[in-house]
Every structure is written in C-alpha cells, then in structure tokens.
C-alpha cells in the first residue's frame, strides 16, 4: 500500500478500536482488530498503547484470566475527546480529497 499511516492516525485507529468495548479490551485482541482494517506489523502496537497511556487517553487495569493476568485498556474522557477531534479532521480531509479525485473540485 502506498498510503502511509501516520502516528496520529494510528493512535486514532487504536482509540476507535478500544472505544468499541465498554469494559475495555486487551492487547492481543486490539492487535487482531486493528489488523482487520490495516496492514500492520504485530510489533507496532505496544508502543502505540504505551504512548496513549502516557498521554492519558487510555487507562489500564489488570484482571485474572485462566490463572494469568490480562491487562485491559479502556478509553478515558481525554481519549474520547482526542478521537472525536481526529474524526472531525479526518472527515474534512477525506471529503476534500474525495471531491478532488471524483473531479468535483
């Protein structure tokens, strides 16, 4: 694919994936979900989750699952605000580009 995914876009995609789950979701599932919409190396996700966590967009909690720990990620209010802001920008951006490509501009 010739179109690169910027760090900001990747952040937003991850936020959108996590935001779908009310009680949060875990690393492996996030990776699989993101990979359904985007070709992405499996090793890319951890740094993104760390970054979003540091920025206060995600919170984590640990739960036991089959005798092991599993870390759940949940989107915070700040995370939802950032996602909304990005969504707005994305709509404006894509609609302009789409118009151009369709010869409407």
């Amino acid at each position: 694919m010739v179109i690169n995914t910027s760090a900001a876009l990747l952040d937003a995609i991850v936020l959108a994936v996590v935001a779908r789950e009310e009680r949060g979701t875990y690393g492996y599932k996030i990776t699989q979900d993101v990979r359904q919409v985007l070709e992405l190396s499996e090793s890319t996700l951890y740094p993104v989750l760390r970054r979003l966590q540091k920025d206060g967009c995600l919170t984590v909690r640990d739960e036991a699952c089959n005798g092991r720990n599993r870390r759940y990620y949940e989107v915070t209010t700040a995370g939802r605000e950032r996602l909304e802001k990005f969504r707005g920008e994305w709509d404006a951006y894509t609609s302009q580009i789409n118009k151009l490509f369709r010869g409407e501009l």
Partner: peptide, 18 residues
C-alpha cells in the same frame, strides 16, 4: 507455567502481575 492459581478474581481485586 501457571504459578497463579486458577481462581476467579473479582475486578476490584487486582492480581499481582507476575
């Protein structure tokens, strides 16, 4: 490979990460 016993843990009780 399961030193943590397989007991259900309530969400309030955060298990110690191994």
């Amino acid at each position: 490979q399961n030193p943590v016993p397989e007991t259900p843990v309530s969400p309030v009780q955060t298990p110690v990460r191994r």
